[in-house]
Nucleic acid binder design. Structure first.
Lengths: 250, 250
DNA sequence: ATCCTGTTGATTGTCAGACAACTGACATAT
DNA sequence: ATATGTCAGTTGTCTGACAATCAACAGGAT
């Protein structure tokens, strides 16, 4: 008979912990500082050099670290790692919280209905027979100023109206992240500039015709299904979006 | 005594070749297809499994591949790898060429002068004594329709007016990339929506007040200096920008 | 003095082989 | 029918080693 075996669960894979550790470490370092050598760092973090290197490479890929063979690994001088760029999908609420700002939800409306053809396309579903979806509309205010008008469209299989309780903080993404049966991977976000329409102008209390940043995003799970289709309008001047772009190596 | 040893030069590091090979391979595969197993792929590409894994991880990081322990590595269903997103820095001209569109340059103006304070800030230089810069203004047209109004600001040390010849295709970035003494790494691009001003409206032949997408970018070299500060206005509807955002793992 | 050249130590890049953990499918027992 | 055990296949990780590159320094030639 086999021993009961504590199983050790192995909640988090080593490379995830290493990633967090490196992030924290970089946050406390100055631009241009040199990281400990790979063998030293691997020993300190309790992983092998191979595992550490896989993580280091992703940081280099993002431009956060620079590695020079024969010299060392250095922190670049331009990443305020606290201020994440667009390449990380984070809810507005978490971002604001990190920056010490208080957010509120206004004009909250939720309904369950059949998806429109445009929404079906956004969810990457064949258009013939519409599925039932949960639609969540709301305006997010920061310091009592409206900054964003958001709509999320989620098939009922993933989220139902009941999940939007009185304590709803404004983030459908955070709700989906809490469900650990959904393995979310990435979001494809399209970016365009659009003039404010009358409806949006009223909700955001700005004048019609002014320029808004419009992000339409499709949130994918690991099995490549669209879990959430969202359309967001952002008032300029409140949030700064940026992207780190890597130079194509010829 | 040691053998003379052919030295073999080692022009390109293995992981660069592996990256190209994987890119090519993915391009010929269908979404959802499974890649060969790591040992098989490593053998085929002539590298060790460790090196292959470092590359595979960066692809997974970008959302191009999905890896599942105990199962395999799969191509995701949503990356038309030919259509790059914002996370890759590519000149408008190359992008258009790839898509089979012809670009032209209009309203080309170049001048060498002292940088303004705003430009000094964009170049991440201390503001006290202005440096001399090359400023390149132009409008890019696709199929004879103006689609973008671009300005590049480059310190004279990196580029001079003479480099902008009669055969200038419109891309300062491509000029900088040709110089292989400059090691370019990444670009930080800020994204905002802005209403069209009178000057821009005339150059782009659109009505003032309509919404434009404004990208301001700082191009960094490996030694962390800003090589190029650029301001770009894009007319909506001609180019679609998107970003793949990864979900923050809690 | 100045320039060139080789040496040396440190660090990242790569390799080979092994084992651990996980997954899915199938067979088996309850 | 529903668990449970087994097994092969795959990714995740580890260990130890060697190769390639770089910066700094010493020594010699000019």
């Amino acid at each position: 008979m086999t021993v009961p075996e504590p199983v050790s669960l192995n909640i988090r894979l080593p490379h995830v912990q290493v990633e967090e550790a490196i992030t924290a470490m970089i946050g406390q370092m100055q631009p241009g500082d040199q990281l400990p050598t790979e063998p030293a760092l691997a020993k300190r973090l309790g992983v092998s050099r191979a595992t550490l290197r896989e993580v280091l490479r992703t940081f280099a890929e993002r431009g956060i670290l620079v590695r020079r063979q024969g010299v060392g690994t250095f922190v670049t001088s331009r990443i305020p790692i606290l201020e994440t760029g667009l390449e990380v999908l984070e809810s507005l609420e978490r971002m604001a919280k990190r920056l010490g700002l208080a957010t509120k939800v206004a004009h909250l409306e939720t309904c369950e209905r059949a998806a429109t053809p445009a929404e079906m396309a956004g969810l990457a579903l064949p258009g013939n027979n519409p599925v039932e979806v949960l639609v969540v509309d709301r305006v997010i205010t920061v310091e009592n100023e409206p900054v964003a008008d958001l709509r999320d469209v989620v098939p009922l299989g993933y989220l139902r109206k009941e999940a939007i309780g009185n304590d709803f903080g404004g983030s459908v993404l955070d709700l989906l992240l809490q469900r650990n049966d959904l393995m979310l991977s990435t979001s494809r976000t399209d970016i365009i500039a659009e003039e404010t329409g009358p409806h949006c102008a009223a909700r955001l209390s700005i004048s019609p015709g002014s320029a808004l940043l419009k992000l339409t995003a499709q949130l994918y799970s690991y099995d490549e299904k669209v879990v959430d289709y969202s359309i967001s309008y952002f008032v300029p001047g409140h949030f700064k979006f940026h992207v780190m772009r890597r130079v194509i190596n010829k």
